[in-house]
Simulated scan of single mutants.
Amino acid sequence: MTDFICSCCGRRRSSRQMIVLGGDKLCYACSEEYTTLCDHCGERVYRRDARQVNSRTICPQCCGQILKKSH
Results as ranks from 00 to 15, higher is better:
52 Q>C: 09
30 C>D: 10
1 M>L: 04
10 G>V: 11
41 C>N: 14
59 C>L: 04
44 R>S: 03
43 E>P: 00
50 A>Q: 03
18 M>C: 10
6 C>P: 10
26 L>D: 05
46 Y>N: 10
5 I>S: 11
43 E>D: 12
71 H>V: 15
65 Q>N: 08
59 C>P: 02
35 T>F: 00
31 S>Y: 01
15 S>E: 09
9 C>D: 12
41 C>T: 14
66 I>Q: 06
43 E>Q: 11
33 E>P: 00
26 L>Y: 05
11 R>L: 13
55 S>R: 13
6 C>E: 10
11 R>C: 12
16 R>V: 03
27 C>I: 06
56 R>I: 01
7 S>V: 06
13 R>Y: 14
58 I>W: 02
36 T>R: 03
3 D>V: 07
61 Q>Y: 07
62 C>N: 12
3 D>K: 13
51 R>Y: 13
64 G>C: 06
31 S>E: 00
59 C>W: 03
15 S>V: 07
42 G>L: 08
59 C>V: 04
70 S>E: 09
12 R>F: 08
23 G>S: 10
57 T>A: 03
39 D>M: 13
40 H>A: 13
58 I>S: 03
38 C>M: 05
17 Q>R: 10
44 R>L: 01
49 D>K: 14
18 M>P: 00
21 L>Q: 11
40 H>G: 05
60 P>H: 03
4 F>P: 02
59 C>M: 01
23 G>P: 04
49 D>G: 03
18 M>K: 10
40 H>E: 12
20 V>K: 04
13 R>C: 09
63 C>P: 00
64 G>V: 07
57 T>W: 05
46 Y>E: 11
47 R>S: 11
63 C>S: 10
12 R>N: 14
23 G>V: 07
67 L>N: 10
68 K>E: 15
40 H>D: 12
61 Q>A: 11
18 M>L: 15
3 D>G: 10
40 H>M: 12
25 K>D: 07
51 R>K: 14
17 Q>T: 09
69 K>V: 11
35 T>R: 01
37 L>Q: 09
34 Y>G: 05
16 R>T: 04
24 D>A: 14
61 Q>N: 05
22 G>P: 06
28 Y>C: 02
56 R>K: 09
25 K>Q: 13
39 D>H: 15
11 R>K: 15
30 C>N: 02
51 R>I: 09
58 I>L: 05
9 C>N: 13
68 K>G: 08
41 C>F: 11
39 D>G: 15
65 Q>G: 06
11 R>N: 14
39 D>L: 08
43 E>M: 12
13 R>D: 04
5 I>Q: 12
48 R>M: 06
24 D>Y: 12
49 D>N: 15
65 Q>A: 09
36 T>M: 01
34 Y>K: 15
36 T>H: 01
59 C>D: 03
54 N>K: 11
6 C>T: 10
15 S>K: 07
52 Q>P: 00
46 Y>I: 04
50 A>F: 07
54 N>F: 06
56 R>D: 02
6 C>H: 08
63 C>Y: 14
47 R>G: 04
35 T>H: 01
45 V>F: 09
7 S>W: 06
53 V>F: 15
55 S>G: 12
35 T>E: 01
27 C>A: 08
54 N>E: 14
54 N>S: 13
14 S>N: 13
63 C>L: 09
19 I>V: 08
35 T>K: 01
1 M>V: 04
61 Q>W: 02
52 Q>V: 15
62 C>K: 12
14 S>C: 05
